[in-house]
Amino acid sequence: MTVQTDKRAEPRQTRFSSRKSIFSMSADFSPSTYIFISACAFLLLLALWLLVTGVGLLKPIFLPSPAAVLARLGKLAADGTLASDVGNSVYRITIGFLIASVMALATAILIGAYRFWEAAIEPFLDFVRYMPVVAFVPLTILWSGTSDAQKFLIIWIGTYFQQALMFKDNIKRVPPDFIGFGRTLGMSDFRVLMRIVVPSAMPQIWDTLRISLGWAWTWVTLAELVAANSGLGFRITVAQRYLQTDMAIGYILVLGVLGLATDQIMRFLGRQFFKYESKA
């Protein structure tokens, strides 16, 4: 007995099964669609904020309206306070992050390439990285006062130990065949590291830099919350003291915008620097 099938239904079924939902794991869509979805998510949160404050579910002292926050930020921008605070925080995070990153990369090359230095240094890095950065704040004030050096030190403590271990993992992922090729050419250890290992690991190192930059924003804000007379964290402390919730939320939003902007800039630069990665 033969089973007859409706051949006209087969193409329709095939077309239906080939359609992928945007919620599926294998979904893929254009960058413009990605941006649209992201914008909708932010607009949804803004609408929820407007609803909660508009119907009076929370008093303004607990959650001011978006209009009140924007008005406060507008006043601070008009008298130059906002620009000064942003400039001070950006300066501190730039210097502190650069110092930590350069030292972490040098350490990572050492412990990633040499077994002896890995055994000598990595356990200490693992030991320190579990210590809470907040516990070091009083000590850093004791050691370096409340100057910018204290902010640099907090950023260094919060990022260096994590970065060194993550950079080391990036370097360890370089295929051994690459290193063997350098040996075949008679290259010295230093040249193998500088000409083969580090360039091969640089796309992953750059991505690690992008991620750890977010930690640096957290630590500089923490340092300014405790011991500073300027900066975004300092202004949040002032707002808390005088119950100026609109200013506190406004500066938190500014921190979010700055963090998102630096993250996207790092992503863009990474795509420009390592175009061969995207092609691969």
Rank of each mutant, 00 (worst) to 15 (best):
A106N: 05
F178V: 14
F161W: 01
R19A: 13
A39D: 02
I99M: 00
A119L: 15
L213V: 02
L50C: 11
V102T: 14
V3M: 09
P176T: 13
F234E: 08
P64A: 12
Y160S: 14
G158K: 04
Q162H: 04
K279A: 15
T146V: 11
A164Q: 02
L193V: 15
Q162P: 02
I35T: 06
R129N: 02
L260I: 11
I93K: 09
I95G: 10
F127Y: 11
V69W: 03
I155P: 02
S278A: 15
A100G: 02
L185F: 15
W156S: 06
I252W: 08
E118S: 13
R195H: 04
I205W: 08
I109N: 04
M187P: 07
T146N: 06
P176L: 13
L165R: 07
D85C: 03
V226D: 01
L44F: 15
V3K: 15
F62L: 15
S89V: 01
I141K: 10
L269D: 03
W206S: 13
F152Q: 04
L110I: 07
A41M: 12
A164H: 00
A77Y: 01
A67N: 08
P138Y: 14
S30H: 09
I171R: 01
I93R: 08
F161Y: 05
T146K: 07
A261W: 11
L269Y: 04
D169H: 14
G96T: 12
P64E: 07
S24A: 15
L105H: 06
S32A: 13
P64S: 10
S188G: 00
Y114S: 12
A280D: 08
L82C: 10
T81W: 03
V238R: 08
D79F: 09
D177W: 00
L48R: 01
S89R: 01
T184M: 06
E277R: 11
I211Y: 15
W156P: 03
A77R: 03
L225T: 02
D177A: 15
L48S: 13
T237K: 03
I171E: 04
A239I: 06
L51V: 15
K279W: 13
V86H: 01
L142T: 14
T107K: 03
F181K: 05
A135D: 13
I93N: 07
A248K: 06
A108Q: 04
P176R: 15
S147G: 12
T245D: 10
T237I: 05
A248M: 12
E118N: 14
I37E: 03
L222E: 12
T221Q: 07
G96L: 08
P199T: 15
D79Q: 09
P138V: 14
A104Y: 08
L44H: 04
I61M: 11
V137Q: 05
L165A: 09
T245A: 08
V134P: 09
D28L: 12
D126P: 05
S30A: 09
A248W: 06
L260V: 11
C40Q: 13
G54Y: 13
E224K: 04
R12M: 09
T107F: 04
D246S: 13
S32L: 06
K275R: 15
E122M: 09
K172V: 14
T81R: 10
T94R: 04
I61D: 12
Y251P: 05
S212P: 03
G56R: 08
S278P: 00
F268D: 05
